[in-house]
């Protein structure tokens, strides 16, 4: 079965300032968890800690498969991924950006071509395949980031404000992609958004961060 993620009393401090405090949660596999909260309350930090980019100062981040905790190693890291709020587009073609994760995993050229081609269709960037990725618009870059993450077929996918500063049309495209993922795959999605309506549309579980603490949220 899928990966489940458990936080137990996770705390994170930057320069003596407490950002996250005693955050505990069980993220059930296959569901979409939406995280809300005011600016600067630690949502992105929580996602980075969950995605194993940074270690917590206190508490534990546990990934479990069939009830057994997994080592937090590269093998596990390659089963999860995070769409960063500002994507981090590589200075190369759109194709190479999306192929990156597959290349470093040692996939064969033909398989990479096929998978990247298919995912670019999904995000509507197929015609931009050979274009320099830095020339994409903000909305296109977000879709590129989404494709780069989705092509890896992650078991846990973190999305940090996937539709921030994106127009209506692009937001709808991105939401549709997320909904399709929910229907088809068994991926656990953990996303941050400032849009309450979007949280309602996409979230199976709603969470709120306030003053570094994590709460369940009803609406």
């Amino acid at each position: 079965m899928g990966l489940s993620l458990e936080l137990s009393q996770v705390s994170k401090t930057y320069n003596g300032q407490v950002i996250l405090q005693d955050c505990s949660w069980v993220f059930e596999p296959g569901l979409t968890h939406v995280l809300k909260g005011p600016n600067g309350t630690g949502k992105s930090t929580l996602l980075r800690v969950c995605a194993l980019l940074e270690a917590p100062d206190k508490g534990r981040v546990n990934y479990l498969a069939g009830g057994r905790p997994l080592a937090l190693d590269l093998e596990l890291k390659r089963r999860i991924t995070l769409l960063l709020p500002n994507v981090g587009v590589f200075n190369t073609s759109v194709f190479n950006n999306v192929a990156y994760g597959l290349k470093i995993r040692g996939f064969e050229r033909r398989e990479i071509e096929a998978r990247v081609g298919a995912i670019l269709e999904v995000v509507g960037l197929a015609d931009k395949k050979r274009q320099r990725a830095l020339e994409l618009s903000t909305g296109q870059s977000k879709r590129l980031g989404l494709a780069r993450a989705m092509v890896l077929e992650p078991e846990v996918l973190f999305l940090d404000e996937p539709t921030a500063s994106i127009d209506q049309e692009n937001s709808e495209i991105i939401e549709r992609i997320i909904l399709e993922m929910q229907e088809k795959k068994r991926a656990t999605i953990i996303m941050v958004t400032h849009d309450p309506a979007q949280a309602q549309r996409l979230g199976d579980r709603l969470l709120l961060i306030k003053n570094g603490r994590l709460f369940p949220s009803k609406a």
Partner: peptide, 9 residues
């Protein structure tokens, strides 16, 4: 960070 989240060693 992008390299890390995409699984780079």
């Amino acid at each position: 960070q992008a390299a890390q989240v995409l699984g780079a060693n």
